[in-house]
């Protein structure tokens, strides 16, 4: 009995395979690079080579590309990232009270009390502090992103960086650089600024109690983790599979749904070899003028998205959010 979770995010596409005890057997982390279909196919190719003969009993999809992924693979559950992250964290530790999740382009806070989500928030106005911004800064400073956080740990005092807006934060960093501050202090300053920004925007008015889990790609950044601990005054935990927590949650939700329905919609690993095409057009049926995307697998239409009335999306019976 294996369960598959797929998380198609803005920056990365993650796939995990769980065994019957919800233990991670395989995790795959692929850069989405703007083409979610290709990323999912790439992941499936790896899975097909290794696990072609295992029985998949439930599949879940999450992330901003969850709908397209669900249509491709035949997911049993399609859930938003917030629920998926919470479910995954609660599977590891029932006592978790707060989840800080920072991904490629959005950051979230999830408040959990008594084992259920009681409140959450997402960044609204600015993406400063998310993965793509850090990526870009690492590139600009010519430091591999993997080592970015370690630089911050080598500094004793951070330079104050204006972190409210990504563009201004960058200007401020360049300004400090030109004044002669060293890289390590600037990076630590940046980490502090981003954490400040997160706590003031996303975490505003939320009661952050330990245990705090730090999830999402940015959790790899030790500098940010240290900055959070400085700001909050207690230890925060980065779970072992921090970068694929969304996919783990999706797999668990997929299992729940498949058990409830007593079947799985999983289409098998063969989609790695299929040819996918997507066409978009403006529907002229009424004054709403929806932009519709049509997904085609080997010359056969498998799903449509983007219409409001259901004229297109109901043509091929795809799974709805249950």
């Amino acid at each position: 009995m294996y369960y598959l979770g797929v998380d198609v995010g803005s920056v990365s596409t993650n796939l995990v395979l769980l065994d019957g005890h919800m233990k991670v057997v395989e995790k795959i982390y692929i850069r989405t690079k703007g083409s979610p279909i290709k990323a999912v196919q790439e992941g499936f190719k790896i899975l097909k080579d290794k696990y072609n003969n295992v029985k998949i009993s439930g599949v879940g999809a999450t992330g901003s590309g969850r709908h397209i992924a669900a249509t491709l693979i035949g997911a049993d559950a399609v859930k938003n990232e917030i629920t998926s992250h919470a479910v995954a964290a609660l599977e590891i530790d029932r006592d978790v009270k707060t989840i800080i999740e920072i991904g490629g382009q959005d950051s979230k806070i999830i408040i959990i009390r008594n084992g259920v989500v009681s409140d959450f928030a997402m960044n609204t106005v600015c993406a400063a502090g998310t993965g793509s911004f850090l990526d870009r800064q690492a590139e600009r400073l010519d430091i591999p992103i993997e080592e970015f956080g370690d630089y911050a740990l080598n500094s004793n005092i951070g330079v104050r960086i204006a972190g409210r807006c990504a563009v201004f934060a960058e200007s401020d960093m360049i300004h400090k650089q030109q004044l002669g501050y060293n890289k390590a202090d600037i990076i630590r300053g940046l980490c502090d600024a981003l954490v400040r920004n997160y706590l003031n925007n996303v975490g505003k008015g939320k009661e952050i109690l330990p245990k705090v889990f730090f999830q999402g790609g940015v959790a790899a950044n030790k500098g940010i983790k240290a900055a959070f601990e400085r700001a909050l005054g207690f230890e925060i935990i980065v779970p072992k599979d921090y970068n694929v927590m969304g996919a783990i949650g999706a797999a668990i939700l997929g299992k729940e749904m498949a058990e409830k329905e007593r079947k799985t919609n999983f289409k098998g690993f063969n989609l790695a070899d299929s040819k996918f095409e997507s066409n978009s057009f403006e529907c002229s049926g009424c004054s709403n003028r929806c932009e519709v995307v049509k997904l085609i697998e080997n010359n056969q239409e498998i799903g449509c998205f983007g219409d409001r009335c259901g004229k297109w999306s109901n043509r091929v019976k795809s799974i709805l959010i249950k």
Binding site: N80, I82, T124
Partner: peptide, 21 residues
């Protein structure tokens, strides 16, 4: 729209799971 829908969906999940609990 993506962020908006995510929030609405997550809120419904929150209400559902709260009730179950």
């Amino acid at each position: 729209e993506a962020g908006f829908v995510t929030r609405v969906e997550a809120f419904i999940d929150l209400l559902e799971r709260r009730r179950k609990n």
